[in-house]
Design a binder for these strands. Structure first.
Length: 395
DNA sequence: ATGTAC
């Protein structure tokens, strides 16, 4: 044994952290993700790791986990501090996907206070923007982020759905986005000095973190307002808005959530894919689950695998027009493959696992009509030279 | 997931 021996017996608590995985044997969980959970459990001060059924490997830390610790680790939240999913009711006279898809605004372009001074979406910005950060406001971002027009499909808890004002056939905007450059900057400032180490001044980190959480929520409102106006509707207050990348101080410890939503008596939209249903659930997770629930279907394949296998399996056309008849607005071919429904686990299995472990009760399911990912750069799909937009990147 | 570097 060549390990250097720390005086562990002199430390106040050396009991190893517990790891609980809330997934049935039917749910495929990648072994790399479980290894990451064990690595997190071995961190100084870690108490309990609760892994959700959408668990998959992340960069350094697992995605789909809630991690309680006496020590605050910024890297366990990651760079997209404040990322979450919100649901906004929207009323439209007609909802023909083909017509509406072309009306989505360019959500790569930030709302500019001068150039877009007259944009009505500013109404949701009351007072100052958190951290004074205007850069990127109203942009959706990349990766798994999206803005989706969806239809309420099946009512699974009539009483709860009625309390939310939801009926079968109603339309909603589902917005999945976060704090864009702001959270990234906050994590980078920490990691440049301390790497994956603890926050030396938790209060200072938390002050910036809380701004990013507020910014992420504001960004989702701005996105929903931009899209609502563009589709000829009025913006609305969200009926659900839960962050799934954050740390909260709870029962005197730091509860880190990475791809896990707050599950203590709140309603959460558990996102499916760009071609399958999503589920709005009433969450009631207890301490064994670190008061958290899953945030989505969870990746089954890495982005690299999805791209490689997707090219052999799918055409761009079938990814843009999904099996449920919805349209995907996405000018980036590579992202379309990376985000293919087949790259994700079955959302019904994730929901079944939450129900089986008594973490949540389904309220309604939604079916996508139009999912916006990136601007549609001219819909004529020329074959074009392969990979000229860069085909690398690992996350 | 991100802005930036290659």
């Amino acid at each position: 044994m060549s390990e250097h021996h720390l005086p562990r017996e002199s430390l106040p608590s050396s009991a190893p952290a517990t790891v609980t995985v809330f997934a049935s044997p039917a749910s495929w969980i990648e072994s790399d993700a479980l290894t990451q959970c064990q690595q997190v459990a071995a961190l100084d001060g870690m108490i309990h790791v609760a892994a959700m059924p959408d668990l998959h490997p992340g960069k350094g830390a697992p995605i789909g986990a809630a991690m309680a610790s006496t020590v605050l680790y910024p890297f366990l939240v990651g760079s997209d501090i404040g990322c979450g999913i919100a649901v906004f009711p929207i009323k439209l006279k007609r909802a023909v996907p083909e017509r509406l898809a072309s009306r989505f605004p360019d959500l790569d372009r930030a709302l500019d206070p001068e150039r877009d001074a007259d944009d009505p979406a500013w109404v949701v910005v009351e007072g100052d923007v958190p951290a004074g950060h205007l850069e990127g406001l109203g942009t959706v971002g990349r990766g798994n982020h999206f803005v989706e027009l969806a239809r309420v499909d099946t009512i699974l808890d009539a009483g709860h759905a009625a309390r939310l004002g939801l009926n079968a056939g109603d339309l909603v905007l589902i917005v999945h986005s976060g704090s864009r450059g702001l959270g990234e900057r906050i994590l980078r400032a920490h990691t440049e000095v301390h790497g994956a180490g603890a926050a030396p001044d938790p209060a200072a980190y938390l002050a910036m973190h809380d701004e990013a959480v507020r910014w992420g929520s504001l960004n989702r409102r701005v996105l929903a307002a931009r899209v609502a106006y563009a589709l000829g509707a009025e913006p609305s207050e969200p009926i659900v808005d839960e962050c799934h990348n954050l740390v909260e101080v709870r029962d005197g410890v730091y509860l880190h959530r990475k791809g896990a939503a707050s599950g203590d008596g709140r309603d959460v939209l558990v996102a499916g894919t760009r071609g399958t249903a999503s589920y709005l659930v009433a969450a009631h997770a207890g301490p064994e689950a670190n008061h958290s629930v899953a945030h989505g279907a969870g990746r089954k394949m890495s982005r690299a695998d999805a791209l490689r296998r997707g090219r052999a399996k799918h055409t761009v056309e079938e990814l843009r027009r999904t099996p449920v008849g919805s349209l995907v607005v996405c000018g980036e071919r590579q992202l379309l493959f990376e985000e293919a429904p087949t790259a994700y686990k079955r959302i019904e299995q994730v929901i079944a696992d939450l129900v089986e472990h008594r973490l949540a009760t389904p309220v309604v399911s939604t079916i996508p009509l139009v999912t916006y990912k990136t601007p549609d750069l001219g819909s004529t799909s020329r074959p074009g030279p392969r990979g000229h937009r860069g085909a690398r990147g690992r996350s």
